[in-house]
């Protein structure tokens, strides 16, 4: 199904409505800033200084105290949502599901007037579209997602995060949608994201073929990214060893996320993306 298909978009709309209902008024300006500014929520009083907005003067307080005080309001800021979508060759079999997740989460963000900054990640960081905001950016966003193709020779997660850091210094929410099968590891990248004070969430997507090995016998293994090959004989023993290694890898990722306070969710490509997003919404966000 195309991401711009009306049926798909209506599903996204349903998810947004669900999100708005579940999360209430916290969607917009959810992330309250400590900064005082021109919001609508009263925060505090401050002495009037020359140049302050006179409209903020609380005349009732002046009438009582003969002193000039202005009202301070909470600054409501829009959130930057950085979506890092793994578009390496290892995601080829999961790209549709990953795109759907990215579409759903980006749709909610755009409907909430947050800035959505989608990037494709492989051996380098590649922007999907220009940073977007508002409903008007939804369709271009979905079209861009529809057209993505895998690229790159390998996945360099740390390098991509460093690029992100170089591009944007503003804190925000970082959604990493990937299988996290990085030969160079994921710890350093996650550490850097945490260091950048982002609210990071890891959405791990796997194929059933990633988790277990059903093929036995004489096999020529080939890496989808590097095209390396090796002729091996896979017995039950090797298959079990691989499954164990994969299980340990995923467990390590989860543990790392927990340790760093990074949200984590694992899903399989066969799962319905709506259920995944619903789970995210109902749990109040990505949580470990």
């Amino acid at each position: 199904m195309s991401l711009t298909d009306p049926a798909f978009i209506s599903r996204l709309e349903s998810l947004f409505l669900l999100a708005r209902r579940v999360l209430g008024g916290n969607l917009q300006a959810d992330r309250k800033s400590n900064r005082k500014g021109t919001g609508i929520t009263f925060a505090d009083y401050s002495e009037y200084n020359l140049g302050d907005d006179f409209r903020a003067i609380d005349w009732q307080v002046f009438a009582k105290s003969d002193e000039l005080f202005i009202k301070l309001f909470e600054m409501e800021e829009d959130t930057s949502i950085y979506i890092l979508l793994d578009a390496s060759h290892s995601m080829q079999s999961k790209l549709l599901e990953a795109s759907q997740l990215a579409a759903a989460l980006g749709y909610i963000g755009l409907n909430c007037h947050d800035r959505v900054l989608p990037y494709l990640m492989a051996d380098k960081l590649q922007p999907l579209i220009e940073p977007a905001r508002g409903k008007g950016a939804i369709l271009p966003y979905l079209r861009a997602l529809d057209k993505i193709e895998t690229f790159g020779e390998e996945t360099y997660f740390l390098k991509c995060v460093k690029e992100l850091q170089a591009r944007h210094s503003k804190k925000g929410i970082v959604l990493v949608i990937s299988d996290f099968l990085y030969p160079t590891g994921f710890e350093e990248g996650l550490q850097l994201l945490q260091g950048m004070k982002h609210d990071t969430f890891c959405l791990q997507i796997h194929n059933p073929e990633d988790l277990s090995c059903e093929l036995k016998g004489d096999v020529e293994l080939q890496c989808v990214e590097t095209k390396q090959r090796n002729k091996v004989t896979i017995t039950k023993k090797e298959a079990q060893a691989y499954e164990k290694a994969m299980s340990e890898w995923n467990a390590a990722l989860k543990k790392e996320c927990l340790r760093r306070g990074i949200g984590y969710l694992s899903t399989i490509s066969e799962d319905n993306f709506s259920d995944t997003v619903t789970q995210i919404i109902r749990t109040g966000g990505l949580a470990g």
């Binding site: 004489d218 989808v224 990214e225």
Partner: peptide, 9 residues
Amino acid sequence: PRKKLTNAW
């Protein structure tokens, strides 16, 4: 032998 593509080389 049969070829098997793997994402977790």
